[in-house]
Design a protein around this nucleic acid. Sequence first.
DNA 1: ATGCTTCATTAGGCCACATAGGACG
DNA 2: TCCGTCCTATGTGGCCTAATGAAGC
Length: 332
Amino acid sequence: MCNKNNSTRRSKRKPKSRSFSLKHSRRTRSKTRKPKYLSLHRLEENMPQMSLPNNDDDDKEITDKQLNLFPLHPENLVEDRDTQYDNVSLLFNTTEEDGDHAVTLNGLLDSEGSENYKNGTATATTTATVTSEENPLSPSLTYGRYSCDDRTRLSLVRTAMKGKKERDESEERWVVYSEVVEKKEMEEVSSGDGGCDGGAWWSERRKTKKLLALKLDYEEIMNAWSDKGPLYIEGESPQTVPHLHEASANILADGFGSASNVWTVPEMASSLKIKAENDGKEDWKKGHREASVLRYKEKRQNRLFSKRVRYEVRKLNAEKRPRFKGRFVRRD
DNA sequence: ATGCTTCATTAGGCCACATAGGACG
DNA sequence: TCCGTCCTATGTGGCCTAATGAAGC
């Protein structure tokens, strides 16, 4: 219902005059407000600072850069254009020396995270780390070295990023707070006391993940459908759905999805395979990345942050409607 | 270092009613 | 199939308030 754009709201708000308000005692916080949504922007603030390794000259400069994952629409843009490329490069470009150690959130989850998750221990990795001394902006976090707190954060981010590929990339990622918390709690419960005991934690996590997989009663479905004609559209091959248990098991076994085990739609997968065979895997990967960058840039340019009124007539009616203290009141 | 208070900021909810669109005869 | 009626869900803007973080003591 209240889908008003926050920035618009903010701009509409008048600064309150404190002089008029009675000096009331401090409000009692009777109940703790549970935020409805978690913004990834906030999650991002808690994420480890990311850096591109192996470039001594640029290390400091890059280290000091903050990822701007939620840039403004051009109309709200001031200096954003200058940083655009850098941000995009931070998101999508990994240098050859990086190998698969991506510097994106996904990359972080896929490569670094998977390594540490797989091992189940807070092991130091060989990639560059940004310590709190080097980067005062992220005082307590180190990248490439995961404590239990880091694992917690990563878990939240991973949950939030889950399904990213299925969504419109232009959408801002908001996640329902309760879902994130519930999943987190489930994981914590399943991990039991040994929160930092990586092996046990990991195996329990696998179990939890398996329990979350969708189970279908195929026989019942087929029976219900039996009198409704053929199951598939004529002339088209039946769509196949990957075995979720297998998929999740593979992903879990390899960490959180290196590029090789990210599930794709079957058609896509076959075309990917053919293309990779024809053009060479590396060339195709490069082209794919460039296409992704282009798509990202285009959508970013077109993002609208101003409030969009869907029904102008409703707006007019609302503006005419009598109010008392901002609330609509009856005409009589 | 810790706890309390004050202040500023912000998200979310409330309200009435016109309208869209589905269900039904 | 078309038309009229009924009903429900939705969307709209301005204000208020609780929640929250920062700063000061």
